[in-house]
Computed example of a mutant assay.
Amino acid sequence: MQAVISMVSSWLLPSLIAVILVTGYARRLPVYHVFVAGAKGGFAWGVRLIPHLVAMMVAVQVFRASGAMDIMVHGLSPLLHWLHVPPEVAPLGLLRPISGQGSLALLIDILKEKGPDSTLGLIASTMQASTDTTLYIITVYFGSVGIRNIRYALKVGLLADFISVLASVFAVHWVTGKW
């Protein structure tokens, strides 16, 4: 079964590209020129995205370097204890909505220090996989297309991240039986 999945996955992308090329040729479209025009548009979009990316990276570095994250974890420690969230993974839960790379660095540190099969390693891995970079998404994607009124996107995104953090802790404790 694994061999079949491997074979299908290795041929899926080339097959999709072939279908697109054949369909374009059958419709008598200038496939190469359409591809170049799309690449040009993608490059322009990438250039518009750069200021938003730089602003977000600077904000994440300031948040981590200033000690604000440590202060937040310390202030939230009674709530974290009550929710059974280990303080070692709390920074990951706080940073994940802001930055994927920053939270990945924290995950790697936890995995190196505690091990991937430890309860903390399992919670951190589950948390990384089940949450999203909400503020990054809103900043980059909404900003790149000019949306200024984010309405409920921020509230719903952060609520989903909070629930995912709690669900990660609960799921790992439930599966491992370690409370």
Results as ranks from 00 to 15, higher is better:
Gly75Asn: 07
Leu120Phe: 00
Ile110Gly: 01
Ile50Thr: 13
Ala124Cys: 06
Asn149Gly: 08
Glu113Phe: 13
Tyr136Asn: 08
Phe142Pro: 00
Leu107Gln: 05
Ile71Cys: 10
Pro78Ala: 12
Leu94Asp: 02
Lys112His: 15
Phe142Lys: 03
Leu135Lys: 01
Trp82Asp: 06
Pro87Gln: 08
Val54Met: 14
Ser118Trp: 00
Trp82Phe: 14
Pro116His: 07
Ile50Pro: 04
Val140His: 03
Met127Arg: 02
Leu106Lys: 06
Pro97Tyr: 10
Ser77Ile: 05
Met127Lys: 02
Met56Tyr: 09
Val85Cys: 09
Gln101Leu: 07
Val140Glu: 09
Leu106Glu: 09
Leu76Thr: 09
Ile50Ser: 01
Ser144Trp: 01
Gly115Asp: 12
Asp132Gln: 11
Leu95Ile: 14
Met69Arg: 03
Gln61Phe: 12
Thr134Glu: 00
Val89Ile: 13
Gly100Gln: 11
Ala129Glu: 12
Asn149Phe: 12
Trp82Ile: 11
Tyr141Asp: 14
Ser118Cys: 02
Gly102Glu: 07
Leu107Val: 02
His52Glu: 13
Ala55Lys: 13
His52Ala: 14
Ile123Lys: 10
Gly102Gln: 07
Leu135Gly: 05
Ile108Tyr: 05
Leu104His: 03
Ala105His: 02
Ile138Glu: 07
Gly75Gln: 10
Gln101His: 11
